[in-house]
Every structure is written in structure tokens, then in C-alpha cells.
């Protein structure tokens, strides 16, 4: 690029000047479709949503223009809403911790296994990512209830005498949520592990360290930032996923996403739904900034 401007710079004919102007405007022209999408269809809606969250709500109307912080106060004081925030945080935290443990073990397994297994395992890990969330929900929806596969398998194997149903329990919601977040966590951790020299593990073993010691003293410190990033990513994802917990969990399992949808489609209370969304956005932004600062620190370590 610099070569182009340099060769043409000495002879500044009008044509060359035009070419340079084109050169300067070209990147903006190239970026314009992407910027239109993210500014007009993301930036402006976000600002309107922020504004909307301060509007008044009246029955039979979506909203009434006004300026009130009532909805935020309502979210922070009304028991049902406060509970929803806590439920979301708690469920996301537990689910992303479980995701992290399973994801780490899975990534380590793939990393240590001979290369011929690798492709099969990666294909397997891609499955939850490539299947629609609704299909995943439906799959578990057929597995957990009284007439589902789980109950049938357990009774016909003679482990249980009566049919059981795990459907509409917090456990089902948790299983579904972990399933949805697992691939993100797995791929982040696998990419981190791939950057580590496997001979370090062997060296540690040769020096007499037990596997657990090797894990604690060698692997864990090397993957620590990766663990935090993967955890944060799973947490964001678990927080935003509302369909899985609300379809598999009990009716009383109100997450923030569920309440947004309920206020928006069911109760037509747009200001309250917006206020809820803003809280979710802020939570996601906080976790993202945390992740970014970790990434920055990691790169500065290596530099």
C-alpha cells in the first residue's frame, strides 16, 4: 500500500490526486455495509432501548413517553424480579462452573489422546454448536419425562421399579444449559492447551511428580488465563440463554431472559423489558471487559 502512494507521489497530477482520494475513501466504503448493520441495527436500537427503559408504562399501551427510573427501582425492589436476577446469576454460575470442569477434562482428553482420535472428538464437540437450541431442548424434553428414554432405560434395566420424571426440575435446566455452553468452553481451552508443549508434562513425570501434582504445578498455572476466559464466556452465554432453562426447568424458574420475553410478548410492557435488557447488557459488558483485560495481560506476558 505504501509502495503505491510513494511511486505516485512525485507526479501529483489531478488524476493521481483523485486516485489518492479514492484510496483514502476506499476503506470507509468497504466498511460501510458492516458499519450500517452494527450502527443502525445495533447501536441505535440499544440507545432507543436505554431511552425506552425510562418511559412510563400504561395498561393497554406498549409505553407512554416520560422519564422515570421506576422500572429500575421496580427491578431492584420487587421480590419477583430480584429473585429472577439472583436465579439467573446462580444458575449461570453453577452451569458455567460445571461446563468449565467438563470442558477442561474433555479438552485435556483430546489434547493428550493420539492425533487420530482428535478429529472425531472435535466433530463431537461441534455437535451442540451446530444443532439448533430448540432441537437440543426437544431432545432433552424426550429424555427426562416419565415416558422418556431415561425412565424407560432405568426401569427396564431393573435399577428402578417405578417410572421417574426429571422433567421440569432445576437439574434438567442445568443439564440443558451445560450442553449449550460446553462447546464454547471446550474450544477455548483446547486452543490454549494446543499452545503448550506436551513434553513439559513428560518432563514433570520424569522428575517424579505424580499426575495430580503435575496438573496442579504445571498445567494449571499455564492455562489459568484460558480457564478464566472460558469461564467468562460460558457465563455470558448461560446468562443470555433463556429458552433452555425455561423449557426444561420448573415453571417457577424465572430467569432474566424469560422475564424479558414475558414482559415484551406477554404483558406488552416494553419499558420494563428494556430495563431488564439493560441490566443484562451491563452484566455482559462487565464480564467482557474483564475478559479483555485478561487477554491483554496474557499478550503482554508473551511479548
Amino acid at each position: 500500500m505504501t509502495a503505491v502512494t510513494e511511486t505516485h507521489a512525485p507526479v501529483l497530477t489531478t488524476e493521481a490526486r483523485r486516485a489518492r482520494r479514492v484510496e483514502r475513501l476506499l476503506p470507509w466504503a468497504l466498511m460501510s455495509p458492516a458499519l450500517v448493520i452494527s450502527i443502525i441495527f445495533f447501536g441505535i436500537p440499544m440507545l432507543l432501548m436505554l431511552r425506552m427503559s425510562f418511559n412510563e408504562h400504561a395498561p393497554q399501551r406498549l409505553y407512554v413517553p416520560g422519564f422515570t427510573a421506576r422500572h429500575y427501582v421496580q427491578l431492584l425492589t420487587e421480590e419477583r424480579f430480584v429473585n429472577a436476577v439472583w436465579t439467573t446469576m446462580k444458575l449461570s454460575l453453577v452451569a458455567s462452573l460445571a461446563t468449565l470442569i467438563i470442558g477442561y477434562a474433555f479438552a485435556m482428553l483430546v489434547w493428550l489422546k493420539p492425533a487420530r482420535w482428535r478429529l472425531a472428538f472435535i466433530g463431537l464437540a461441534l455437535c451442540p454448536l451446530l444443532i439448533s437450541e430448540i432441537s437440543i431442548i426437544f431432545g432433552w424434553w424426550m429424555f427426562f419425562p416419565k415416558n422418556g428414554l431415561l425412565s424407560y432405560a432405568l426401569t427396564s434395566a431393573g435399577i428402578l421399579s417405578d417410572k421417574i420424571s426429571l422433567m421440569y426440575t432445576e437439574f434438567a435446566a442445568f443439564v440443558g444449559l451445560v450442553y449449550v455452553t460446553l462447546p464454547f468452553c471446550f474450544f477455548i481451552l483446547l486452543s490454549i492447551l494446543d499452545g503448550i508443549d506436551k513434553r513439559l508434562i513428560e518432563a514433570s513425570g520424569d522428575l517424579g511428580a505424580k499426575p495430580l501434582t503435575t496438573f496442579r504445578e504445571v498445567l494449571l498455572p499455564l492455562t489459568w488465563t484460558g480457564i478464566l476466559v472460558a469461564f467468562a464466556q460460558s457465563f455470558i452465554w448461560a446468562m443470555g440463554t433463556y429458552a433452555t432453562p425455561s423449557a426444561l426447568g420448573p415453571d417457577t424458574l424465572w430467569t432474566m431472559g424469560y422475564l424479558i420475553q414475558e414482559q415484551m410478548l406477554g404483558k406488552s410492557n416494553w419499558p420494563l423489558a428494556s430495563a431488564f435488557s439493560m441490566i443484562l447488557v451491563v452484566a455482559v459488558a462487565v464480564v467482557m471487559m474483564f475478559t479483555r483485560s485478561l487477554n491483554a495481560r496474557r499478550t503482554s506476558f508473551h511479548a
Binding site: F41, F42, I44, P45, M46, L48, M49, M52, I236, M239, G240, T241, Y242, G257, I260, Q261, M264, W270, A273, S274, S277, L280, V281, V284, M288
Partner: peptide
């Protein structure tokens, strides 16, 4: 990085 619920609501409000 935004949840689908938030994006859907935002676009619905704006358009």
C-alpha cells in the same frame, strides 16, 4: 456477544 433476547427486543423497539 449480545444475548439474542436483547438484540431481538432492541430491533423490535427501533423498527
Amino acid at each position: 456477544f449480545m444475548p439474542g433476547v436483547v438484540l431481538g427486543l432492541g430491533v423490535a423497539i427501533a423498527f
